[in-house]
Design a binder for these strands. Structure first.
Lengths: 204, 204, 204, 204
DNA sequence: GATGAATGAGACTTCATTCAT
DNA sequence: AATGAATGAAGTCTCATTCAT
């Protein structure tokens, strides 16, 4: 899933550390990130940090050694997800079928959002608060997605007036709402297809 | 706790009440609801209740006399909004142009959601948590909207596979996401039109 | 002990409140201040605020309603003491025997400091951090003391090169140190008299 | 815990050690003491131990190997300073001019205290808490200072009712207070001279 | 009925100390 | 012996809710 080298999760929020983290520390960091992702997804951003620590079977202190703030932890969770999407979008850019590539990514984005409502909040809030902190990561992903869009538009597969931001808004928003309303998979699928149909080129 | 008929949470001056509150009490209740709507819209659901009381120029005690719980206050705010939408949808049902009526309501819903992010959360969460508490109110509104949809479908204006819930999800979701991302009015408008295009009948 | 009207303790840190505090609230505020004075004196500034609250037989919440911050509480304690000294110094200004008045105040200051080592810290720190917060209070007291000094100097009772600040430093410092070293009353008295002798006019 | 002779806490390179630490260990111990002295002086006793370790470019673990407790580290810092003063006072005892020797030491003590507010706290608290732990060190210094005082008294240079403890109290206290009040060097000098004048023999 | 003071559980965060590497 | 990651008790502060005035 991680396409290129090293420790892609660790390069955000950890600051510039000369030597890589010790083996156990890296494992714990990953445990914490995983636990946080789960817990935030299950119970929203208002869960106490102690809960995250407990889920990771670690002390709060450890959590705070890795993430100096609850917000930092959250940002790191979001960053990990954005990284995944960035990498996946990059892989799709060179596809032979730009339309298919576009919709594949859109589906993938929807998958990621579904059942993970904090990413929804997160991506939604990224545009406002976290853009600074997530640095170029969001921009990179946006550039990739914009490329997917442009190529799909050039191929005549989708409408011309659509930006990456709007695409994110539509998909994230619909999934988020669907989930909050407790709609079943079927209804979610229909909603997504309404969006897809809206995105497709019309001759109206 | 609810003593008399119908939808006791919502009657803030709309319909005639079986045993009406004293004049000043009713005024205070209205003040509180108004303040709560404002404050929740501005700062989200996490504002302290004291803030709501202060905005209404009343003591917390008074607030708690009218609403036994912060949640109850919130439900009442949501209820008031749903009532408005219910009434507006009812008025549109008998329109001569079902397609136009449908889109008019959809625009109206989007207006209501825009810049009121708590209603977004609220409507979104209604499907899950508050359905019970909001009693038939949501159902009524849904029935009205379903009627709008059916008539628009019969008139060939919109696609056949669309339920009221999905419509809500799409509109609420896109507005909510647009707002959170800080997108401008123009982008929001484009997103909404993507949804509208998706909702329209296609011959694909 | 309070020379002029009303509630001299409450007019610091409470902000401008139109109507005076309710009777019980004022009582509790006083209880808290008293408890804080005691507890700080006994165990230094590092006591948990909970301890202060417990001593006052009140909840922490109440403490925080009256003093928004641990520091604010501390400032209020200091303020109460400075008020006392300000008032006492004012009373001594018009004495017929400026030298005696000066030494009387100096003794009084020493009494206040002795066995209250937080005032020591407090007065000491006033010059740096709290000057802003204690507003004119410290200045008022300093002006009074400066007047005492000037009159005593004019009367030839004390040396010419002495400012109020230095006087405070000498007295507070010696008492504080004496107390910390666990010196007995006798030694403290001797130290104070060394200072007094140093302060007196010499013909050297 | 203290295995061999005399004043085991203080031997950081001063005297010959019965079973000397390995060269690097001794260097680390010295680094830590130096760092602690600096850091405590700059930021007070409340600095985290990690800060001391970082300043010494060592791990906390190393710190704890040398000093079993934060308090132990602090005691060691104080001990080092007291040793210096002890040695200096010893050198002055045989001076030809006991009065000058006395005031020289007093100035020296003031220098040591000035701008090192932890020694102030430390020396002040020595009398209470650390006396036991610092073993005979303080006593030795006190004996030396007492000798200085006695000789100066015999020479008629200073008043007869002055003990070493009181001298310390006066000097430490005035410097400490001066520093806390943020008084400039000039005011500090004046305060010290008031004390000196008080200490001198008067024929009053 | 209205007021706002009181309450205290619980949130986030720090830091002295221990222990695996 | 050195390192720095882990620990968790304890501290400050918030806020939903109750209750005396």
């Amino acid at each position: 899933m991680h396409v290129q080298g090293a420790h892609p999760v660790a390069d955000l929020g950890a600051g510039p550390c000369d030597r890589p983290l010790r083996a156990d520390a890296r494992k714990n960091r990953a445990l914490l990130l995983e636990a946080a992702e789960e817990v935030f997804a299950e119970r929203g951003l208002s869960v106490p940090v102690d809960e995250v620590a407990r889920r990771a079977c670690l002390g709060v202190g450890t959590l705070y050694r890795h993430f100096p703030t609850k917000e930092a932890l959250f940002v790191a969770v979001v960053a990990a997800r954005i990284e995944r999407l960035r990498d996946e979008s990059r892989c799709l850019i060179d596809s032979d079928d730009p339309g298919a590539a576009f919709f594949a990514f859109a589906e993938r984005l929807a998958d990621e959002v579904r059942a993970k409502h904090d990413l929804a909040d997160a991506l939604a809030e990224v545009g406002i608060d976290y853009k600074a902190e997530l640095g170029g990561l969001v921009d990179e992903m946006h550039r990739n997605v914009q490329a997917l869009i442009s190529r799909a538009q050039a191929a005549g597969a989708i409408r011309d007036d659509l930006s990456a931001q709007e695409l994110f808004g539509l998909i994230v928003g619909s999934c988020m709402a669907a989930e909050h309303q407790g709609l079943g998979t079927e209804a979610q699928r229909r909603m997504l297809h309404v969006v897809f149909d809206g995105v497709r080129r019309h001759d109206s």
